[in-house]
Structure formats: structure tokens, C-alpha cells
């Protein structure tokens, strides 16, 4: 058994932190995409015609029930053949955002369903146009209620970003892997990556729980 090498740890740390930036970038961009697309799905679930509801529901169900990693491979290898060439990071962000949008869609749906019927009735009684009812009355209330739930998905997505290493994105895990491959010492870089994840994810999840309690009242 070999002992922990602190100087080697110090040596790989800058690369890992550079990877962390990529990881955070992917999480941030992926979240924005997931929030936006999820809202589109949630509104499509309420479309008046089933020709919208049904296909959207099927696609969302399919994407949610299949592995993100395989979806990333699909995007990574198939998108270029259709003439769309993106950087690996962009491909990864699309994959993360699309996958998580199927979860945020459910969150929004629950939030929208949670707005009391009286709010719809009051909007009708005031003859507010449909669009205005959504943007000024329903969505502000729905989204406020689901902020903690959305936050939890950001954390979940953050923990899924190492998958982007599989499509050559230089995230934290990829950096650790490369450092390991160079020196044949994986223990230090991978342990540090694991700890960094806990160090970021745990306080953030505590924050979400606190937020949930506050908004719950």
C-alpha cells in the first residue's frame, strides 16, 4: 500500500480546479437550458390539442427513461453526421439540458397544478388574456414554489457532469484521468475530485432544504 503523496496532490490541483471551472460552466449552461426547455414541455403538456400533448409526452418519457451517458454518445457521434458540428462542451450542455428538462418539466407541472383554481377563476373574471394570465398570474406563483426543487436538479446535474468526460470534455474527472494516466497515480486526483463534489454539493443541498422550508410556510 502506498501512502498519500501531498506534493503530487499539490501538483495536480491546478489542473483539477481548471476542470472544476469547466464542470461549473457545463452545469450553469445546462441548467439554463433545462429550465427553459422544461417550461416549454410543461406548457406543451397543457396544450389544447393532443397532437401536441401526446408526442411531447412520449419524447419526454423516452428521454427521461434512458441513460444520459448514451444520449451524450448519441449526440456526440450523430450530430456531426447531420452537419451540425459543436464543440464537445456544447454537445455536453445540450445533452445535460435536454435530459434534465424532462425532470424540470415535471417540476413545473407540479408547480402549475399547485396554483389554486381560484387564481384561474379570478383571471377569467377579470377577462385577463390567456397570455397575461400565464405570465403575470400563474407562472410567477408556480415558479416561486418550485425554486427549491429546481435547485435540487441543478445539484443532480452538477453530479452528472463527469459523464461529459466520456465525450472528451476536459472537466474535473477528465483532468483527473489524464493526470492519473500520466503518472499512474489515480488515487490522489480522483479522491480530490470526489471530495470537491461533496464539498460543493452538500452545502448547496442544505441551502435548498432551508429554502424549501422557508417557501413551504
Amino acid at each position: 500500500m502506498r501512502t498519500w503523496d501531498w506534493s503530487y496532490t499539490g501538483h495536480v490541483l491546478p489542473d483539477l480546479l481548471r476542470g472544476l471551472l469547466v464542470t461549473l460552466e457545463a452545469t450553469a449552461l445546462g441548467s439554463v437550458l433545462a429550465f427553459a426547455l422544461g417550461l416549454v414541455w410543461a406548457l406543451a403538456f397543457r396544450a389544447p390539442t393532443r397532437w401536441v400533448r401526446w408526442p411531447v409526452g412520449a419524447v419526454v418519457e423516452f428521454v427521461r427513461n434512458t441513460p444520459l451517458l448514451v444520449q451524450l454518445f448519441f449526440l456526440f457521434y450523430v450530430l456531426p453526421t447531420t452537419g451540425l458540428t459543436f464543440s464537445p462542451l456544447t454537445t455536453g450542455v445540450i445533452g445535460l439540458g435536454l435530459h434534465y428538462s424532462t425532470y424540470t418539466a415535471e417540476v413545473y407541472r407540479a408547480g402549475i397544478d399547485g396554483v389554486p383554481p381560484g387564481q384561474w377563476e379570478a383571471a377569467t373574471a377579470l377577462s385577463l388574456p390567456r397570455r397575461r394570465t400565464w405570465t403575470a398570474v400563474i407562472l410567477p406563483q408556480a415558479i416561486r414554489r418550485v425554486v427549491p426543487a429546481l435547485g435540487n436538479y441543478v445539484i443532480a446535474m452538477f453530479k452528472d457532469t463527469p459523464m461529459l468526460a466520456a465525450i472528451t470534455v476536459l472537466d474535473m474527472l477528465k483532468q483527473a484521468e489524464e493526470a492519473g494516466a500520466e503518472s499512474f497515480r489515480y488515487t490522489e486526483p480522483i479522491t480530490v475530485v470526489g471530495l470537491l463534489f461533496v464539498l460543493i454539493a452538500y452545502p448547496t443541498s442544505l441551502l435548498m432544504r432551508a429554502l424549501e422550508r422557508r417557501l413551504g410556510n
Binding site: M1, R2, K159, D160, T161, P162, M163, A165, L173, A176, E177, G180, R185, Y186, T187, I190, T191, V193, G194, F197, V198, A201, Y202, S205
Partner: peptide
């Protein structure tokens, strides 16, 4: 708190060295 994939890597690569 940690990522399942990182954990898998750790068990596979790091644990043997320990």
C-alpha cells in the same frame, strides 16, 4: 453528495492503489 461516476472511478482506480 458525490457523483456516482467519480465514485466508480475511485473504487476502480484509487482503491487498488490503497
Amino acid at each position: 453528495g458525490t457523483s456516482a461516476l467519480v465514485l466508480m472511478f475511485w473504487l476502480f482506480f484509487a482503491l487498488p492503489l490503497l
